[in-house]
Design a protein around this nucleic acid. Structure first.
Lengths: 184, 184
DNA sequence: TGCATCATGTAATCAGTTACATGATTTT
DNA sequence: AAAATCATGTAACTGATTACATGATGCA
């Protein structure tokens, strides 16, 4: 399991509340690891119980109080231990591919609009990633030479961009194939 | 959930036992949907209970009997209904990316061998996919014109190939970045 | 007045993983 | 004799999703 570790990384990058983490998991770190607020609150509680996190109650004016979490030394240790462990290369879990193969037994043309919708969504995501790259990774280097964190965040983002580009090209291939089969 | 649907597709392509399905989930359909035999047996039992599958006890010489499952009309209907439902474009779940961002807080160089291992594994998978493409999709068309099932299986495989190629290029990018940061 | 955002959670359910378990046959 | 393959499952646990729940503030 890696949600705890994704949370540790995110909190090391910047401490924050459960709510804030949930928002980060809708962007940034969420580009390659998703989680809902329910999951996050549950795991935060467990991590706090394990002494991995420090909590600070932050009173806010005109807003409910929030609990700001930051990584405690045992949390750091847990992250470092996990970084040492080998993980197995992930396998895909691509629902759309199941549908495409299933379409052979129904009407392939009926899938066209669904695939177009996915094409659109991935195009939007690519645009969003590219805007983020322009915003965060085209300025001058931080003073004091290379910033490892920034470089590593950038290479991960480049992975997201490559994934979206590849997916867009493939979905176009799927659309062409479906049109060919439908004779349109 | 789509495991039931992946099973329906696989059984429509060819009826088989739970054991045989588990093997297909290690290849072919497993390229984009994984499942272990425990999961498969559990779901098969439920699907049988729901009347989605027909079972035939097949006695075998010199081997334990097997239960051969095939798709019953209600199972077909369930698959077709699912094919109509829109699904949301999937989000990635990339553990290695979490590690890469985490490495900023530890020693980035320590990740190099892990990334190399992944590079190797994806290279192997690509080789395997390409061999499958050569084997299954370079012969002459089936007699009687285009075979929709074959075309659709091929476009899904092309997706797997594109994914592995993209991943290999990205992992190389990651390695270059790590080496740059480590000064090696 | 109504909707969106900030902020936190519980409960129930569903899906997936890991470990355990059995027993025959075939290959090295 | 040992290891691999065929064939089937159960049990316990962990992780993820969905639905429900509350309550304040800010904006249109």
């Amino acid at each position: 399991m890696a949600l705890e570790h994704a949370i540790l990384v995110s909190l090391l990058e910047k401490p924050g509340s459960g709510y804030e983490l949930a928002r980060r998991f809708d962007r940034s770190i969420g580009y390659f690891w998703t989680a809902t607020h329910q999951q996050i609150y549950r795991v935060l509680k467990r991590m706090e119980g394990d002494g991995w996190l420090d909590v600070r109650e932050v009173p806010q004016q005109a807003r409910p109080d929030k609990k700001e979490y930051s990584v405690a030394p045992p949390g750091r240790d847990a992250l470092f231990a996990w970084l040492q462990e080998p993980i197995q290369p992930e396998s895909l879990r691509h629902e759309l591919a199941v549908k495409i193969r299933g379409a052979a037994f129904d009407d392939p043309a009926a899938l066209i609009s669904e695939v177009e919708r996915h094409h659109q969504a991935h195009g939007d995501r690519l645009t969003h990633y590219l805007a983020g790259e322009l915003r965060d990774f085209t300025g001058p280097d931080a003073p004091g030479g290379r910033d490892a964190g920034r470089e590593l965040q950038h290479v991960v983002l480049r992975g997201g961009i490559a994934y979206e580009r590849m997916t867009l090209a493939w979905l176009q291939d799927v659309l062409d194939t479906l049109h060919r089969l439908a004779g349109t």
